[in-house]
Every structure is written in C-alpha cells, then in structure tokens.
C-alpha cells in the first residue's frame, strides 16, 4: 500500500516542473505542455485522495472531468496559437505584444 504522502510529493514535483515550463519557456506550445503537466499533477492528487472515498467516488469522477477540461483547453489553445502564428509569424510570447494589426 503506497501512502498518501508519496503521491502528494510526486505530484508536487510534476507541478513545479510544469510551473517552470510555463514561466521560462519562449515557445507557446511548450507553455501549453507545462499547463498540461500541472493539470496532470492535479489529477494525480484527485485520484490519490479518491482512494479513500468509496461511497461517493468523488476523486475519480472529478479526475475524469479534469481530463475532459484539459482536452478542451488544449483544443482552444492550439486554435489560438495557429491564429496568432498566422498573424505574427511567431509564437514567442515576448514578441506578441500588439493588439492591432
């Protein structure tokens, strides 16, 4: 039986790696990948706590909802990235600082 703290520490590591990717990367796709890592860490926490909830299965149900939300956010984010690339010919977020054409 793996204890709860093990799961929490692993998910904290994955979350902080995702945070680093969001803060440091200069490529919008890599920022999206960092957000995906953070969502995965959150899902791991959901699932680890859901093991102690046999009556409601709340953790596992909301882990599935979180997976669906992540898929939706990736679809919308990639559509935005492709549009931004068509406009600015770059996906470096430091070069995208103008609202007008």
């Amino acid at each position: 039986m793996i204890s709860l703290t093990h799961f929490l520490v692993v998910s904290a590591c994955i979350f902080c790696i995702g945070l680093y990717a969001v803060l440091a990367k200069r490529n919008t796709i890599m920022i999206l990948v960092g957000i995906e890592l953070m969502i995965n860490a959150a899902i791991l926490n959901f699932v680890a706590f859901g093991k102690y909830d046999k009556i409601n299965y709340g953790g596992q149900v909301f882990a599935l909802f979180a997976i669906v939300l992540a898929a939706a956010s990736v679809a919308v984010g990639l559509a935005l990235i492709l549009n931004v690339y068509r406009h600015f010919k770059t996906i470096n977020p430091q070069d995208i600082h103008e609202l007008k054409d």
């Binding site: 793996i2 799961f7 692993v10 796709i29 999206l32 990948v33 995906e36 899902i43 791991l44 699932v47 680890a48 859901g50 093991k51 953790g59 596992q60 882990a63 599935l64 997976i67 669906v68 992540a70 898929a71 990736v74 679809a75 990639l78 990235i81 492709l82």
Partner: peptide, 30 residues
C-alpha cells in the same frame, strides 16, 4: 501512477485522451 491509486479507468482514459488526442494535436500545431 494512477494505477497505483487503484484508478484503472482513469489510467485508460488518460492514455486514450492524452496520448491519442492531445499529443497528436500538439504535434500538429508544432
């Protein structure tokens, strides 16, 4: 890791949705 928290359906959904869908989408956008 989800399997060790006894969430087998979540693990399979993760492989289906993320590896099958999200990753292909990311590679397309790249």
């Amino acid at each position: 890791l989800y399997l060790f928290a006894l969430a087998d359906f979540i693990a399979i959904t993760q492989i289906l949705v993320y590896v099958g869908g999200v990753l292909i989408l990311l590679i397309f956008a790249f």
